[in-house]
Design a protein around this nucleic acid. Structure first.
Length: 393
DNA sequence: TCTGGGGTCCTAGGACCC
DNA sequence: TCTGGGGTCCTAGGACCC
């Protein structure tokens, strides 16, 4: 059975949503990023990138802005040097989420088996949807445009890995259908970094052994790759280069963690700015508690993330006996983590994370069940036999 | 012209138990 | 007293993705 998997990717998503709102900016270089300005400043009109000062990165850029070399993830100050006249707009994630639900619903009306890959992309299983592939993919594109006014790019191939590659081939507003026979001509000339899962580090390591294209990677002996990149990743690199991918669509999944973090407008010192840091951390706890309550989860693990002024980052975790969700309980757990963090340097970021999530409903059911025999260590005391063993040692 | 915020998955070491 | 492995949990860090 040959599968028919589509990857659908919205074109310059955040920027395109903003162009719906501000059609007068169409055709201009526009960049999304940075913090929301004051209402007064926003009332005074569009901001030029050159007038921006501060931290932040480019979230999305229109194709006109990309022509100047502006890329997602680039610092805004650097982007301003490349395209000073570009218009800078702050992100409006509520709107992007709403439009995201709209385009996904439009696709689901045609092909209901969908894997969510974030706010602007999905995989769609077309295997059992009647219709010829080209016409079907065009129907999806039309439905998305009809529902949102936005264009997307689609790749259709036998698996997720190839579809993800294919959807990139003719952006924007692309439609690319590939079969396994197309791999040598269409996939092998691409750089290794085009493969989802080969990031900057792996790309550099491959370049160091003179491997630049997927085709070059495909010609390598798998044993050699395993030697260089480890059993798991090495074997995967070989499979990926040959376009082989058996991963099924994940049509539903439970979140593994929920987190909140913030980068400060200026670096803060743990001693001099103690009160402000405390306020920030408590605010993060409150926001995370809201997220947990809204989504219906309790956390059995709480993590603290600290990034220093030099951008070095550390994390401290704390596992809990009893799952929690309130801001107060999060704060207590964060305090435990904080005791294990060196606080001499200035900080640029604080973050907290709720992990090992338990559904609130399921935990309730479990706690309403007849109590089990007390688990050892529940009250923080070592079981008695441990004491005997210790004293006999 | 330094580098956001929200995630997932993998690895590896130590503690602890059998 | 010493020597094992295997399994699980916890913690920390890193690569990668949208």
């Amino acid at each position: 059975m040959t599968h028919r998997i589509a990857h659908l990717d919205m074109d310059a998503y955040f920027a395109s949503v903003e162009l719906l709102r501000y059609p007068e900016l169409r055709g201009q270089p526009v960049v999304i990023g940075g913090r929301r300005r004051t209402a007064l400043a926003e009332a005074q009109g569009f901001q030029r990138l050159s007038t921006y000062a501060g931290r932040g990165v480019v979230t999305t850029a229109t194709y006109e802005a990309r022509a100047f070399g502006v890329r997602s993830g680039m610092g805004l100050m650097k982007a301003a040097a490349l395209a000073p006249e570009a218009i800078l707009l702050p992100g409006d994630y509520e709107t992007y989420s709403r439009v995201s639900r709209t385009f996904k619903a439009a696709v689901a009306a045609i092909a209901p088996r969908i894997e969510d890959r974030g706010i602007d992309e999905i995989y769609v299983d077309l295997t059992d949807v009647p219709g010829e592939t080209q016409a079907l993919a065009q129907r999806l594109k039309d439905a998305v445009r009809q529902a949102t006014g936005l264009s997307c790019s689609i790749g259709v191939t036998p698996n997720k890995l190839l579809s993800k590659l294919a959807s990139e081939l003719q952006k924007p507003d692309g439609l690319t259908i590939l079969t396994l026979e197309d791999i040598p001509a269409r996939i092998w000339p691409l750089p290794c970094s085009a493969i989802n899962g080969i990031g900057p580090k792996a790309t550099a390591r491959l370049a160091a052994i003179r491997i630049h294209t997927i085709g070059e990677l495909a010609q390598l002996d798998p044993a050699f790759l395993v030697e260089h990149f480890g059993k798991s990743y090495g074997a995967w690199l070989h499979e990926a280069a040959h376009g082989r991918d058996e991963r099924p669509l994940a049509t539903s999944r439970e979140p593994k963690s929920i987190s909140r973090e913030t980068t400060f407008e200026r670096d803060l010192h743990p001693k001099q700015d103690r009160e402000e840091l405390t306020r920030i951390l408590l605010h993060l706890c409150e926001r995370l508690a809201e997220d947990l309550a809204r989504k219906g989860y309790l956390a059995r693990n709480v993590g603290l993330k600290v990034r220093y002024a030099d951008f070095s980052t550390l994390t401290r975790d704390h596992a809990l006996e009893v799952p929690i969700a309130s801001a107060d309980a999060l704060r207590d757990a964060v305090r435990t983590c904080l005791k294990r963090v060196p606080l001499e340097q200035r900080l640029r970021l604080l973050g907290i994370r709720a992990g090992m999530l338990v559904r609130t409903t399921e935990y309730r059911l479990q706690s309403e069940a007849p109590p089990r025999v007390a688990e050892p260590g529940l009250f923080g005391d070592p079981p008695p036999y441990a004491v005997v063993r210790t004293s006999s040692a």
